[in-house]
Design a protein around this nucleic acid. Structure first.
Length: 720
DNA sequence: GTCCGACATC
């Protein structure tokens, strides 16, 4: 072969490789590169640049290192272009150290080299370091260009550094880049992310041309700031001004509808997406699914999902999370299987969603299976996956497994500590929660808002009122942050449970922020326990104002009326609830025996062994009455004959499940049962007695926490 | 020839 032919050959291979890279098919590009080497054609500088580009977009660090070695081996001279591509590859792949090494070693550096470093550092999540490098770059008298400004502004946005953002903005004004449309869109995003809506609007309003990207930045900005109404409004406005939405616009506006729970708006946007063809976009499709889920229509979500031509890991994860949200853990886990049958590999987010499904459904068996998959796919050292595992095991009743997972996490963060503290909290292990908190402080882990929520929950479940007071005070006095709304609702819950209703009421009145539904619910719950009518009515009124379809509030208020003898009010309220089509979730209890789940409803006679179950319940009732048990009908709100009430109480779903568990498992073995609602007071009392009569430990998970019944006592010490 | 660009699933 003549030398000229070889030259042309390298050139044409490179052209083809580049075409794949530019078309967004980096994997194909690498395949072609391999083929080229198989043909014994030596790559040149231009080939290397294309291949590094492909590695960067695939985040293929190992492959990138190989290419780097080949470059060195080939004797190819490291010029600015090749050096920049190497820096970019290492930085994008997250290896900032290696990027720096090339950067420092390069014979000459252009503004592009600095840009590659800065944007890589921003992407790796280190906005502060990026700002330092920006400073350094200017000391070296390198003039920043629009690309630099875009990266640095993103860096400011990512860490919410408003002051730095403003100073970059000031520099930008003097630089001659300030009319660049991309830079301005970036500024809009930065100001939104730093919470300065006015500054963002000012930039938008002063733009000579509003491109679709500018509108998108505004729409997304408003969504992120929690002003979804405004986002939907802008979506309409942009079209009135003759700008056509693109797929990103749809993602933004669907997000807004999802946040607002605005089903009707969502449907309109859906129709429009179909008209313009953007519904075929895989991300718009996934967002439509998400919107319908968040707006409460699982049927529509399924319809969209089933009609999607292509689904990716995100579409499936959305669906798995959606089923869980609707209490369909079984369907969620089924989806995980289908996804794997479709050869889509779950990522960490999918697995976390699946673990949530197991946690919600108390499906310990499936949870362990997914844990196995996690180990198999090498995600077990991921701290976020680990935190979901801790949560799953805790909610499935195995706090020992939670501890084991916690101890095996190599690098803890605040999320994993919080998950473990919360695990102890729901099991009523207040002192363990506190011990962990002390360790966490000793290790210098930065405490966040969620930590206090976990700690206060631990206090609530263990009845530690004084400690709760102390912690609540220290949020502001020691940690210098304002106690948030969720901390207030925890505190009100704790105060309410011990009957300090005046104090709870006073706390609400002196809150610096607007009380939300959770705050009023905590108060209403306490009023129900102590039969405080007036305050309870006031709390309920506030809840209905904020959320007219809150089932829990209807139930609590109607219970409150019933326990205070206001039967008429109770009945009227129930009628009102039905008129407004607010449906009560039926109480349900399930138990796993021999890897099979048995589900019971109230007065359930469907179970094949119902005769034996009733026989056992009768036997237990007699023994319980001998032990001094008086059925407590206060917890039953419907106005009915006393005898009928007692019958109904005996047939609550939890009692049926316990009786079934007792007759289906060997003497002395522990029982675990799960209830979808809170356990009722009578069942709680009865279970305490049963645990003593049969000499077994009985673990009950209700919607709120775990109750470990043993020898006539419960771990919740009657605080729940 | 190299660097940036509104965006989603927890």
């Amino acid at each position: 072969m003549k030398p000229g032919t070889i030259q042309r050959s390298v050139f044409s291979w490179t052209v083809n490789i580049r075409r794949y890279v530019k078309n967004g098919q980096p994997l194909k590009a690498l395949e072609l590169y391999q083929e080229m080497q198989n043909e014994a054609i030596n790559p040149d500088k231009f080939t290397f640049i294309c291949v590094l580009n492909a590695c960067a977009s695939l985040l293929a660090l190992e492959k990138g290192r190989d290419v780097h070695a080949q470059i060195v081996q080939s004797g190819c001279k490291l010029d600015v272009y090749l050096g920049n591509s190497l820096v970019d590859m290492y930085a994008k792949c997250g290896s900032i150290d290696e990027a720096y090494r090339v950067f420092n070693f390069m014979p000459g550096r252009s503004v592009v080299s600095w840009n590659a470093m800065i944007s890589g550092i921003v992407k790796s999540g280190n906005g502060k370091q990026a700002l330092e490098l920006f400073e350094h770059m200017q000391q070296e008298r390198i003039v920043p260009d629009t690309v630099t400004f875009v990266s640095v502004l993103n860096g400011c946005a990512s860490i919410g550094a408003l002051a730095d953002g403003r100073s970059v903005h000031a520099q930008l004004r003097q630089s001659g880049c300030s009319s660049d449309i991309l830079v301005n869109n970036c500024l809009i995003g930065m100001y939104f992310k730093c919470g300065c809506i006015e500054d963002a609007c000012e930039i938008f309003n002063n733009l000579p041309v509003h491109s679709v990207v500018s509108w998108n930045a505004m729409i997304m900005g408003y969504v992120k700031c929690g002003q979804s109404d405004k986002a939907v409004q802008l979506f309409r406005q942009m079209q009135q001004e003759g700008v056509d939405p693109d797929s990103i616009t749809f993602l933004g506006v669907l997000n807004a509808c999802a946040k607002k729970g605005a089903l009707e708006d969502g449907r309109k946007v859906h129709a429009q997406a179909i008209k313009s063809g953007f519904h075929l976009d895989i991300m718009v499709g996934s967002c439509l699914v998400d919107m319908y889920i968040k707006c409460g229509s699982i049927d529509d979500a399924c319809r969209v999902f089933n009609s999607m031509k292509n689904r990716n890991v995100i579409s499936w994860s959305t669906m798995i999370a959606g089923y869980t949200k609707f209490g369909r853990g079984d369907k969620a886990l089924e989806s995980l299987q289908q996804m794997q049958q479709a050869s889509i590999k779950p990522d960490t987010i999918t697995l976390m969603a699946a673990l949530n499904a197991c946690a919600a459904a108390a499906a310990l068996h499936e949870g362990r299976f997914i844990h196995g998959q996690i180990i198999h796919s090498g995600f077990e050292s991921d701290v976020f996956v680990g935190s979901s595992l801790i949560d799953m095991y805790a909610k499935c009743g195995s706090i020992i497994d939670s501890c084991r997972v916690f101890n095996n996490i190599p690098m803890h963060n605040v999320v994993s500590w919080n998950a473990m503290i919360m695990g102890y909290a729901i099991h009523g292990l207040g002192s363990d929660a506190l011990r962990l908190f002390e360790q966490m402080c000793q290790k210098g882990v930065e405490i966040d808002n969620a930590t206090f929520v976990c700690l206060l929950s631990a206090c609530s479940h263990a009845g530690l009122v004084d400690l709760a007071h102390y912690l609540f005070e220290s949020i502001s006095s020691v940690y210098g942050i304002l106690a948030r709304i969720e901390h207030h609702s925890c505190m009100i819950d704790i105060l309410g449970r011990v009957g300090h209703l005046h104090e709870a009421d006073k706390l609400i009145k002196t809150m610096w922020c607007q009380p939300d539904v959770s705050v009023w619910m905590a108060l209403l719950g306490a009023c129900r326990i102590y039969g405080i009518l007036q305050l309870g009515e006031l709390a309920a009124k506030q809840i209905f104002k904020l959320d007219p379809e809150n089932v829990g509030a209807y139930v609590l208020l109607s219970n409150l009326y019933a326990t205070t003898g206001k039967w008429d009010n109770s009945r009227m309220l129930q009628q009102m609830r039905k008129r407004r089509h607010v449906h009560k979730q039926p109480g349900q209890t399930w138990i796993e025996v021999n890897n099979q789940v048995h589900t019971f409803l109230v007065n359930d006679r469907e179970h094949p062994q119902i005769m034996e179950i009733e026989e056992e319940l009768k036997r237990l009732s007699e023994e319980m009455i001998k032990a001094g048990y008086v059925p407590n009908t206060r917890f039953l709100v419907r106005e009915m004959e006393e005898e009928l009430k007692q019958f109904s109480l005996c047939h609550h779903s939890e009692k049926l499940a316990i009786a079934f568990g007792l007759i289906s498992t060997p003497d002395g073995s522990p029982l675990s049962i799960f209830k979808n609602l809170r356990v009722c007071g009578d069942c709680h009392e009865a279970t305490k007695l049963i645990s003593r009569i049969v000499g077994r430990s009985i673990v009950v998970r209700d919607a709120n926490r775990f109750h470990h019944f043993q020898q006539g006592a419960c771990s919740c010490r009657d605080y729940w």
